[in-house]
Design a protein around this nucleic acid. Structure first.
Lengths: 343, 343
DNA sequence: GAATTTTCTTTACGCGCGTAAATTACTGAG
DNA sequence: CTCAGTAATTTACGCGCGTAAAGAAAATTC
């Protein structure tokens, strides 16, 4: 390794005995030059350590190798996990992922989108805020940038949506709970930020109706992204008012359930499926922490890998199709039931 | 708002009745043009919606307005939280933060650093992997880019370090535990990835020695970033082998404690400070989930806001000083004790 | 109101690379 | 060896902006 600093592609081209346009071609797509030339370049690359200037590279490109990944709330380990999986996929595919979190705020989501559009990314994975999203802003963004929505669907936005099949989630948990004990009551926030919550409630109602059972929906007040605290408060209120309609509670999502379990514990209510347990609690998402709750949480898991794979695959086709699909592509991935001690 | 698309700064300059260099000056620093001129530009800006091309802007700049934030593991809510706080500070200060996670892997950390260096960022906040970091790579990076290390210190790297005062953390928890019951045994991973772990063990040994007490360090096998599972397994092993040396356990960090508490629960061991409790457990970090454990975790909290403020402030001085400090600046921020039900 | 300072305009060049067109060199099949 | 086809080279221009220099205009000072 010679440590002589290389200023630009011109210089590197000279050192590797090739012309600049050929080097440029190589960096755009190494497969576009002859094998021997490629070796020659890679040999020089190992000797001199040169990287083309990103800014100059992207300036004259209509589409860059950048892929944006935008999530509503990165401090939620669910999004951290899915973002991490997507990031890896992008790198493996030769793209440069850039990660953004809206931190639950509409203004930030809008800023992220307008900043992202200026980067001329090859494509974007967007998990929108949901109810709090500025539909106009997202629509305008999707007109400029090839976008795959994930996690939460906004009807008609983006070229495709990859998400979880909420009906599959709820049917599996409800079926299991009904099979092994009392039918569950459904526990959720009154004004959920995420459209999945509404889909899950509807799925619950449908599954219960199909089974000829009376649904029970418990809605608790609460705003924002502090789901655990809302769940905890809900548990306290319900137990205090003796308002639990049954001994089986199905939470809309794991973060609510984590709080709910904490509330039950604080009230001395033993949760689980064994004897001596007053309550069964189950939920959806398989949040990274749900195996460490007390008791460990029975839940329906996202197939993180499958979702990420499908996202990448969809974005690839989208890029190849020039950024537009004839019809909006929707993929729903079913859940995997995870049995633990809580139900 | 006229929706005529503006191609470049030249065109925008014409529309706003000013010259391009003046517009360029404004975008570099709005305060560098006369107030009236600024108004004139901002007025045009509101009518025409123009953003200079990022790539062209940064190409000829020696330092950009980009700030890199690199953490070892973003799926850990502690890092998600600190990254979020730093991100906000950067935006408020007019910088564009870009977030990176090494996902616990040395190769990724190195890739992030070399990619980041190519962006010519104004500065970087780097929380290194720690033991797994490639010291040479970090050293080389810090030579090129003004870097503030945070969370975990690597002696001599970067121009400054902002972190938590591990001695303050441990002294407060140990003091509290000693004051209210039996002196704690210290529970940790045998080969911790993070240098803070070592500092905490040393602090524990010192605080115990100063108090004339016999220290007890329990080390559990385990690699990687799945701290909760390691803590859980540790609890099972200790309880099974009746190897708990005392009824008071101080975990090195909250993620271990979260797992430890789960293990205790699974073993039917009641944790807390009330009567009927077999064990007290405390820890350090005030992890976002530590208030939802069963029981809620007594811990020593990072001052997220203070740390973030100090980081920003340090980076500002560093940038103003031209990227170099005469002497490496180290700031340690003390902890805040959080009393909950577990101890 | 003149002198000084600050701000803006004009002009012009350069950054590092993408990319197109025309030309030359190489490759492999017959 | 010839010839078509592919690959690389040469040449040249453009992208959008930073920035420097010199001069004009405006603001400030006394």
């Amino acid at each position: 390794m010679t440590d002589h600093k290389i200023r630009n592609m011109e210089e590197f081209a000279a050192l590797s005995g090739l012309s600049r346009p050929t080097i440029s071609k190589y960096f755009n797509d190494p497969a576009s030059v002859r094998a021997r030339t490629r070796e020659q370049i890679e040999d020089a690359l190992s000797r001199y350590e040169f990287r083309p200037n990103i800014y100059a590279m992207n300036q004259n490109r209509s589409l860059t190798k950048i892929v944006g990944i935008a999530v509503p709330y990165l401090a939620d380990p669910f999004f951290a996990e899915i973002a991490r999986t997507l990031e890896r996929r992008c790198i493996d595919a030769g793209f440069s992922p850039i990660l953004y979190s809206a931190h639950g705020q509409q203004k930030l989501e809008n800023d992220i989108l307008s900043g992202l559009a200026a980067l001329k990314p090859a494509g974007v994975f967007l998990a929108p805020l949901g109810r709090l999203s500025d539909r106009g802003a997202i629509e305008r963004f999707c007109r400029d940038v090839p976008t795959v929505l994930f996690d939460s669907n906004i009807e008609g936005m983006g070229e495709a949506f990859v998400g979880s099949d909420n009906y599959s989630f709820v049917r599996q948990t409800v079926d299991y709970l009904c099979r092994t004990g009392a039918p569950p009551a459904f526990f959720e926030m009154k004004t959920p930020a995420n459209p999945n919550a509404n889909k899950r409630r509807k799925a619950y109602l449908k599954v219960m109706a199909d089974a000829g059972l009376e649904p029970q929906v418990i809605q608790i007040e609460g705003e924002g992204w502090g789901f655990e605290e809302i769940g905890r408060r809900g548990a306290h209120e319900l137990i205090e008012k003796r308002a639990l309609p049954t001994d089986t509670i199905l939470c809309s999502n794991d973060r609510l359930a984590i709080g709910f379990l904490a509330g039950c514990y604080e009230r001395g209510l033993r949760v689980g499926r064994g004897e001596g347990c007053a309550l069964r609690v189950a939920s959806h998402d398989d949040h990274p922490f749900s195996r460490f709750t007390c008791p460990a949480l029975t839940t329906a898991a996202h197939e993180y890998e499958l979702v990420a794979d499908k996202c990448m695959q969809t974005l690839f086709s989208l890029i190849e199709a020039g950024g537009r699909f004839a019809t909006r592509d929707e993929t729903l991935i079913p859940a995997r039931l995870i049995l633990r001690a809580s139900a």
